[in-house]
Structure formats: structure tokens, C-alpha cells
Amino acid sequence: MTMKTSTRQVDGVAIVDCSGRITLGEGSVILRDAVRELLSKGQKKILLNLGEVTYIDSSGIGELVSAFTTVRNQGGELKLLNLTKKVHDLLQITKLYTVFDVRDDEAGAVKAFS
């Protein structure tokens, strides 16, 4: 399954619902484009909902890191929501779990944006 994103707005936070595979090539590019588009519109509070992400490779992990630092460098915040076990485990072994603000409750995540 290829990567798909759709974005919705909740209380000033852009929630990007991601599904499919975030892998080298198309998947990573689609995520990058979604985040860039939000930033270009001045949307700097971004919540990536990864609940329907079935697979992520090292390129996809790199893309999440890139999104995180890009948003932060522009004075914004990027958080992650609803990690699957696979993605959770990958972020654990790469020691990125504590770098990202990871949430499992959408309403709580939205409130957590400053």
C-alpha cells in the first residue's frame, strides 16, 4: 500500500492522518510534501497521526526526523500520535522515542501544543 496523507484542523493544530508505508521514494516524499505545504501556509503546529502506517524503513525514520527538525527550526512544533507497535519499536531502538513528543490520545495531544 502506498503512502497517503490527509490533513484536518482541530483547534489550530494541523493533524496529518498518514496511512500506508513511509519508505524510501514515494512514501517519504509524500510526507515531506505534506509537512512543507503546511509550513508554507504558516501552519506550525503539526500532529502526525501514524495510526495507519503499516511499515517504515530507515528512510522513513529519517523523514520523520527531518520533519521534526524542519518544523522546530521554523519555530513550530511537531508531535507524533498513535504509533503502531512496529513504529514504536523502531523509534525505541533508534533512541528517537524520547526525541519526539509521542502521544496516544488525540485530544490530549492537541491540548499539549503551546
Binding site: G62, V65, K95
Partner: peptide, 21 residues
Amino acid sequence: DPLAPENLLKTSGRGIFLIRS
């Protein structure tokens, strides 16, 4: 080493580490 603090936010360099893991 992708786990070194100075490399944690690098966008690449995790492939061999994941393979070994």
C-alpha cells in the same frame, strides 16, 4: 554511530544499525 547524541537527529545513517539490530 546513529545512537550517538550528536547523530540522533541526522536524517540518514541508520540502515546498517537496523540490519545489525
